[in-house]
């Protein structure tokens, strides 16, 4: 299929290919010209001013480097390689001093190395292009329930639990563990009033949240005083919700929930389970809120 999307995709592929080639050639150039790329230019200039005895007179280094560049550019017509040569090779070589036999030998060997690496790079680029072309563009999936999270597009299980007489629901998909509280929590100073403390379980320190105080502060409940029998771990995070009673799990379909947007004041609320008239918790948002407010 052609269109604006495919043109954009083509541009992206070109950018990726260029980036691959540039990165690859940078690596090669660093390997081939370690003394040039690592040493400061001043050092090379000083070396050129003090030739050793019994050596042939120095050649015009600018001409030599220019020859090298030209030969390289002729044999390496890749646009990206061209750009890289102009940027990184030319200024460095133009100031360096080498003797004629040495540079010719090096030139020969380097050209051979470059030819080999170019061929390898071209093969890799062509493989990358083939791979990119073989990848089908992702089909746009139209969600049947746009306001519902992805995990709730089909039937899903929820756990109903009770906090100070209020029934709440949480998706089983978002649950870690349900832990029966068998020992005290350790209080941690300097935390918000909804932070009951830390509960040690299976070599993990879990943070216990006073669900009533966090979710419905207007009701004035205090779970730390009233007591709680279970903590419900949110995903695999350290956060757990304290509750008095765990009812049961039920399977519901997305149309049994009145979904709400997450832009409102109660970002932890995913929606209302109509049949049970209870709030369905949006676990990801709740974890984010807890992290934000606890820090």
């Amino acid at each position: 299929m052609t269109g604006p999307g495919s043109a954009k995709s083509g541009k992206q592929k070109t950018v990726i290919v260029k980036a691959v080639v540039k990165e690859y050639l940078d690596t090669i150039l660093a390997d081939v010209f370690p003394e040039i790329s690592d040493e400061p230019e001043e050092t090379l200039l000083e070396a050129s001013k003090a030739p050793e005895p019994n050596q042939a007179p120095p050649i015009d280094t600018r001409q030599a480097s220019s020859d090298l560049q030209e030969s390289y550019l002729e044999e390496a017509p890749l646009p990206t390689a061209d750009a890289i040569d102009k940027v990184s090779i030319a200024p460095t070589l133009s100031n360096s001093a080498v003797e004629v036999p040495t540079i010719e030998e090096k030139k020969q060997s380097k050209v051979e190395v470059i030819e080999a690496t170019q061929a390898k790079a071209l093969k890799e680029v062509s493989d990358t292009i083939s791979a990119l072309e073989s990848v089908e563009p992702e089909a746009e999936v139209e969600l049947q329930y746009p306001q519902a999270p992805p995990w709730a597009q089909t039937g899903f299980d929820i756990l109903l639990f009770n906090v100070c007489g209020l029934k709440l629901a949480v998706s089983m998909e978002s649950l870690g563990r349900i832990i029966k509280v068998e020992h005290d929590t350790s209080k941690i100073i300097g935390k918000p009033d909804w932070f009951i403390g830390s509960y040690h379980e299976s070599e993990q320190h879990l943070y216990v949240v006073d669900t009533a105080k966090f979710i419905m502060p207007e009701k004035g409940f205090d779970l730390a005083e009233l007591g709680f029998d279970y903590i419900i771990q949110l995903q695999r995070s350290d956060w757990t919700l304290a509750c008095k009673e765990v009812y049961k799990t039920i399977r519901i379909s997305p149309d049994q929930v009145k979904w709400r947007s997450q832009k409102g004041k109660r970002q932890w609320l995913a929606g209302t389970v109509i049949e049970h008239m209870c709030a369905l918790i949006h676990v990801d948002s709740l974890i984010a809120l807890l992290q934000e407010q606890a820090s």
Partner: peptide, 14 residues
């Protein structure tokens, strides 16, 4: 059914 976090003038939902 009470609604957690609702303003006082909201009794709840039916």
């Amino acid at each position: 059914a009470p609604v957690p976090g609702a303003p006082p003038y909201v009794l709840g939902i039916i």
